[in-house]
Structures are given as C-alpha cells and as structure tokens.
Write a protein that binds this DNA or RNA. Sequence first.
DNA 1: AAAAAAC
Length: 496
Amino acid sequence: MSDSVATNTSTAEATEPTFDQFGLSADILKAVRESGYTTPTPIQAQAIPVVLAGRDVMGAAQTGTGKTASFSLPIIQRLLPNANTSASPARHPVRALMLTPTRELADQVAANVQTYSKHTPLRSTVVFGGVDMNPQSDALRRGVEILIATPGRLLDHVQQKTVNLGQVQMLVLDEADRMLDMGFLPDLQRILNLLPKERQTLLFSATFSPEIKKLASTYLRNPQTIEVARSNSTNANVRQIVYEVHESDKSGAVAQLIRERELKQVIVFCNSKIGASRLARVLEKDGIVATAIHGDRSQSERMQALDAFKRGEIEALVATDVAARGLDIAELPAVINFDLPFNAEDYVHRIGRTGRAGASGDALSLCSANERKQLADIEKLIKRPLEVEPLEVTMRARRDGTAPRRDERFGRPERPERTERRHTSRDESGPRRRTAGTHDRPRGRQQPIDEFFLKPYEPSPSAMKRHEETVEPERKSAPKQPLAALLGGLGMPRKS
DNA sequence: AAAAAAC
C-alpha cells in the first residue's frame, strides 16, 4: 500500500528504462515513438504508474521535465477502454479536464494530447479566451473526451451550456501555483464544484506553498506526492551569467549579446508589456528580427508571434512573463533577462525555457544598479550565488532607426570639465528630416556612474553569507485574498 | 511594482 513509486528496482539501473514498462497501449506507444521519445524522464517514470493506478497526484516538477506527457499518457490510457468511435456527442462526454493558467500553455498541452492520442479514437479540444467562441462550441458539441482549457473561457462555455462537466473523471491542474498567483482560485472553485466528487485529481505546481497545500488538501484525496527535482532548483544544463549594465544600456546590451553570441533564437524577458514592445521595436531597428508577445497583444498576434518564433522566422521573441512558464520551444539556446523579475520564482521559470531535454542553454541576465534586490532574492531562492560580470556595451541601440554605432563608449561619468553643448542640430550622419527638438535628445544621458559600477560586485563574502543565512528561506508570498476564507467557505468535503 | 485571465 504505502508506496515509494520510483526507486525499488535494482534492475532498472542495469537496463535503460523504456516506455514499454508501463503497460501503455500499443497505439499510445506508437505515438510516443513517432514523437522521438524513447526513455521516460524521471517525472514520467514516477508519475505514469501512479496515475495509471488511479491515484491522486501532487506533483512538483519543473516545466520542461516532460511533465505534460507524464499526465497525458496515463490519462489517455485510462480513457481508452471506454473509448468508442461513435459519432454521437453523447458518447463522447468530457471525461478528462486539464486546466492551465495561460492560453499558450493550454494550446501547447492540447497539441501534446492530440499527438499522443492520434492513433486512438479519443477526441480532444482546447478552449481559451481571446478567440472566437463558436469554433470551440462546435468542437464541444461534436464531443470530446479530453478538454484542455483556461478557467475563464471554460466557465464561459459552462454558462453557454456548450459543455457539461458532470462526467469528468480526471482533472489536471497544471501550474497550479501560477493559477493561484493569477487569482484564479474563485474560478477554480466554481469549476471544481461542477465536477463529480468521485474523480482522480492531479495537481502540478512548481512549489508547494501553504496555499497550494491548502488547495490540495481540499480537493485531492490521499495524493501521492511526486517530486523529481527539488523545486526552486535550476537545471544544471543552464549556464547562468549576470551582466551588470547601466539601465540605459540594456537595449544595446541585448543587441550586442545576440550578435556576439550569434544567437539565432532567443527569448528576451521584460517586466512590463510596454517595455517588451519597446525593446522589440528597438531590436528591429537594429536589424534583429524581433516580435513582442504579451497580454496586451491580441490572441492572434500572440499565436502568430509564437508560431513564427517556433518556425525560426524570428530571432528574438521579446516577452513578458506570459511566456515564462511551460512554453516548450525546441532547442532554444538562450534566454536573456532584460529585467530581473520581481518575483524570484519567475526567474527559475524563465530560464527553464532553455536547456531543455538535456540540451545546454545560456541564461543571460542584465542587472542594473536598482535590481540588486531582485538579484539577491534570486540567489536566495536558487541557493547559490550567481556569476556576475561587467558587460562592456559597445553597441548603442538607437531609437531613431539608424544603424547602431559600434565601439562607442557611453554611460561614463561626466567629464570633469564641461564641454560646450551644441544646441544646433548636427551630426555627420546625413540630413535630419526634422530639427531635433529639445526632447528628441535624451536629457541627462550622461548620468554619473553608480557606485555599483565602480566597485566590483562581490558575490563571495556577502552573497555567501546570505546564502548561509537563508538555507531555509521562508516563504513570504502573502495571498492577495484571504485564501483560507475562500477555501473554507466553499463547503467542499475535506478529503474523505 | 508587474504580469496573467471571460465577455
């Protein structure tokens, strides 16, 4: 009964584990083989048997560890015996529901499910906001066994009575911590109240915060905990470098890193939507094919950007944290943090976009003087100091669309003696269309250098001290809403 | 402080 899932086989060490060992149907194995997978990842090796056995799961796994397959494959398997080829929608009630925090993630999980189930009679579809409801409604009316959704649009469909969740036997909450962060708890509660109490529930989360534990204790029954890598740890395949740069040099630094390292594909993370759009424009003007992806862009723009990036048509995908979690882009060699994230956990997720599936990757972060707090938080979370080096930005990203000037130093301290400012329009780079107005020229560009840049960053003494002081970092994240009240007031049975 | 998600 009591079960340590993974590690009881001494023979498994001798022979390479394969997908055949789980007793999955030939149709599923065929699809897995066609996808090019031969060896289950640790999370798959652990989760698949547990899910097949019908148990609830509380899973902590980094995205990109093969998590999606770890629940999709056994769910498909469990649905198979009662699958039928009937065209009648009534014969295809939703029996497995998978919820994700972002639309892109939903789309991606759906693509995986589609792939793994393609040789089976099972049907699946995905619903999320920002796009026309009608095609989604049509697909639901035709009937699907597996539904992947973001919570808001799913509730919309519930209200429109285009979907019935009364037959759901298996529920997946993917990136559950993220969903709570995003304030999805009320939506989740509404959805969960529509589901049969008798069901299998799988909850995946990057962290096991108190909120997550509370959610799990409310909605999961005697779950098996599966933890592959310690959460908050980072992938050893990812080389992390922090470059100290002046805030105003960041755009140029990004362009420079892309050029110097000849990065063909890179995701650049920004903290704000406006910042992402702006950086994408600047990079474009510097001759780098770039597109922004964030929540203020239309869903079709978002999908277009992501598709073009996956096809290799875009060099730099400039993103907010909408793209931080879960997105699987094959062979992404690097990510750049234009800003350090406010939330240290997002750093782990961002850099998790690279170095996936055993490949190596670089996580390059720009850190300005006012981001040291974030840097300290990150080091605390990942429990080690980061390699920090100065970056000499020799390339200036130009806002006016001209080519970047090379080998031009800037951002130095102000000259001791004041040089005469020429207020007339100038420049040997050809005639300007318009005379530069006073605010066309960035004022105060020559800011005094911050002391951050004068003395070398000292990770060793202070960071190590921090490191030691925080071996057991306490979680801060206070819930935005009184979570206990919300959970308490909903009258769901605590695990029976 | 900012991002994400339903209309």
